[in-house]
């Protein structure tokens, strides 16, 4: 797939000297879902705002669909939809009016059939004549998405779309995002929820202190950086790891009933076979074996620790 968003050495420094973006370079493929992870103040929202034209960059370039966001801003912005982090809506407007307004702003002629399709997709059609103030928080978030989709963008930025929403609505949002991806929309979302990125993203970008620490395919990232653990459940608890088994990779659970072996999936030899034979040689009897993999959250925390070091 070709790159639909090309960000090159993007910089943003504020008047007080604070550098929110320190030369971010990022390419986003058409049709993918990229999740940008990072702690508060990492630069996620600044990055999105700069690409969308809300914030002025102090250096670097951004192209969307091959169009420069400064010199060819009409074509570039026309391809972008933005769902902001905050629920920014005029309270006295009707749902249909505000969505229609958004479509018009992007120079698209009135098309009620297209808007009906979007509103139905987002379960908002029945609420089209309701004032925004009468809607629940979840519905308001849907309205924001409807407004961002009103001009049929090819690239959609979702800035923490599920912040503060309940689990059910979060799952609904994931379904909506999956549906948009199926329609060929490229999605870039920022999130604090690692499980969200793990559940829906194709690639993960980690940003901290205005720098992009990495961008990688989610599965490859988890395979590369994820540690696996083998849990060896014993029939009888033991007080300590037998001397013949002692190693940095092996620990004993608090209740003494499980040996926990941490290994690297990328290594040529994981050491599992040797471990199991050593366990048998030590006279320990097993009841069960279990493996588990590091979550994206653990990988994310590790990355930030490395960056801080």
């Amino acid at each position: 797939m070709p790159d639909i968003v090309e960000i090159n050495d993007l910089r943003k420094a504020y008047a007080d000297g604070f550098e929110a973006l320190k030369g971010v370079t990022l390419k986003i493929k058409q049709g993918e879902i990229l999740a940008l992870l990072g702690p508060n103040g990492a630069g996620k929202t600044t990055l999105i705002s700069t690409v969308c034209g809300i914030t002025t960059a102090t250096g670097g370039t951004v192209k969307v669909g091959g169009h420069d966001t400064i010199t060819d801003y009409r074509a570039a912005r026309g391809m972008i939809g933005l769902v902001p982090q905050e629920i920014n809506l005029e309270p006295f407007e009707k749902v249909i009016s505000t969505v229609r307004f958004s479509r018009g702003l992007f120079g698209k002629p009135k098309d009620d059939a297209a808007l009906e399709k979007i509103l139905r997709q987002l379960s908002l059609w029945d609420k089209r004549d309701s004032q925004i103030r009468a809607l629940s928080g979840g519905m308001k978030r849907r309205v924001l998405i409807a407004k961002a989709l009103a001009h049929e963008p090819r690239v959609l930025f979702l800035d923490e779309p599920t912040a503060g929403v309940d689990v059910e609505l979060r799952r609904d949002m994931w379904e909506i995002v999956a549906g948009l991806k199926a329609d060929g929309v490229t999605i870039i979302l920022t999130t604090h929820y690692i499980e969200e990125a793990e559940a829906i993203a194709d690639r993960i970008g980690v940003i901290a202190h205005g720098e992009l620490l990495l961008v990688e395919d989610k599965n490859k990232l988890m395979a590369r950086m994820g540690k696996k653990q083998l849990q060896v459940h014993l029939t009888k608890p033991i007080d300590a790891v037998p001397a013949s088994l002692v190693s940095d990779a092996l620990t004993l659970s608090e209740d003494g009933s499980t040996l926990i072996y941490t290994y690297d999936t990328r290594a040529e030899r994981t050491g599992i076979t040797k471990l199991l034979s050593d366990v048998a040689a030590a006279g320990l009897v097993l009841t069960d074996l279990e493996t588990s993999q590091s979550s994206l959250e653990e990988i994310f925390v590790d990355l930030l620790k490395e960056d801080a070091a």
Partner: peptide
């Protein structure tokens, strides 16, 4: 933000 991000 809508005005600033629109192609206008």
């Amino acid at each position: 933000f809508e005005l600033l991000s629109a192609p206008i």
